[in-house]
Design a protein around this nucleic acid. Structure first.
Lengths: 237, 237
DNA sequence: CAATGTGAACAAGTTCACAGCG
DNA sequence: CGCTGTGAACTTGTTCACATTG
């Protein structure tokens, strides 16, 4: 369903010996829990890369807030080879994780919703460094059209398809109110944007071949409330 | 470690027959996955309450994006009694969920970080309706101090403890940059705020008795990238 | 000999399928 | 008869413990 995409896997690893990038195994189906942790490992490694050449499962796990057994199992799923008695090569694992996570491609992101949440997202550091590039911003509020966010001019809702096509957007971030979410998703899908991160608190219907991920911040504060009450209860016991 | 909190469990259910609130069982340790779904059920029920008195596990599950077996198991953990052949009483389950999740208490929330993300969060609809009330906003940027967000005046960082104490804040939302997060957490804990929702992309150290929940939006777009690539791959097969 | 890689035990979460009840 | 409640099967994820290796 999705059209063929140009690969750009060597972009980041180009500064490194070719051997490093070659170690990458076929990115088989990884458990979601593992993928979540890989993103954390990557962030830690990004900081570590200037400080040390090698890192033990123990240390990396601690920095990432997990335990060494979990980390080693995660790594083994990537078919990686640490050195026994030594640990993992920081740079090598970094490249491996970037490639595995799909962060060496160029993700041309369309931001739909230029409210506070959209602006927060656009301003977030670290996106550009991992393959994400905002190519356009859309908002239905005429007052916002023409203003700029992060050097990007806000476009009208009617320009969605044209903008997506022009910049060959292959990802969208949705920060619109719940009621607006489904119609926007339909437009995005029609415009060929098949990967969507939504912050709207509603389930979204999409055809096969479209990947949607939802983040629900309101849910998180409610879950905190539950665990807060639990925490108190077990405190006294 | 945390001080005793006044219960206010009857606040929302006060408009209902007392019998409804009485059906509430001891909120035993619920699986995190169940808690996550409960928040979704509640949102659906909030919309359904004006339309129908009763709902089947099948229907509620569909609206919530899950299946009826999961929903019934979740409900059974709450010790709820649906009516066989009929379904669940919408109002009754709504009250049950609110109570279970701890949303009938008054959560006096301190917002630390008045940037875009903080403003987005403060403006989020639905908080007030579920027990959350922002009692103060803090930011370290002097230019923001004195401006207002959602009718609340932004206070200086040095006022954190005084503000927390004055309003008896029992929850905080952290929307500060990563490097600032740990120091702020330490201040919050010292000020007696023992429940924290953090958007900073760093693990936080807190003493026992403090509940922290972390939301990492940068992680979500990276996970989307992974699943996007996966989706393409399995498309062709 | 320090630290990986992994089978096996364990724990958590989901789905099935059906008995039982209103 | 329709729909709940739940044991049991199953799937997914985590932790243990130890053989293995540079």
């Amino acid at each position: 369903m999705s059209s063929s995409e140009e690969y750009d896997a060597a972009a980041i690893s180009s500064a490194l010996p070719a051997e490093l990038a070659t170690a990458v195994s076929a990115p088989a189906h990884l458990p979601e829990a593992t993928v979540r942790r890989l993103t954390t490992y990557l962030r830690v490694l990004d900081q570590l890369v200037d400080e040390q050449a090698t890192v033990s499962s123990q240390d990396l796990a601690t920095f990432a807030g997990t335990n060494s057994a979990t980390l080693r199992k995660d790594m083994s799923l990537l078919g990686t080879f640490g050195r026994r008695g030594v640990g993992y090569d920081v740079q090598r694992v970094r490249v491996l994780l970037e490639t595995t996570l799909g962060l060496t491609r160029e993700w041309r992101v369309l931001l739909v919703g230029a409210g506070n949440l959209g602006r927060a997202f656009a301003g977030y550091a670290g996106f550009r460094s991992h393959g994400f590039r905002f190519v356009g911003v859309i908002d239905s509020n005429p007052e916002l059209v023409g203003t700029t966010i992060n050097d990007l001019e806000v476009s009208a809702a009617s320009d969605l398809e044209a903008l997506a096509t022009k910049h060959r957007a292959n990802m969208a971030v949705l920060t619109v109110p719940g009621v607006a979410a489904q119609p926007v998703v339909d437009q995005l899908v029609a415009a060929g944007v098949h990967n969507i991160l939504s912050f709207a608190p509603v389930p979204l219907r999409v055809p096969d071949g479209v990947t949607v991920r939802r983040v629900d911040v309101a849910r998180e504060i409610q879950m905190l409330a539950y665990f807060a009450v639990m925490g108190e209860a077990s405190d006294g016991t």
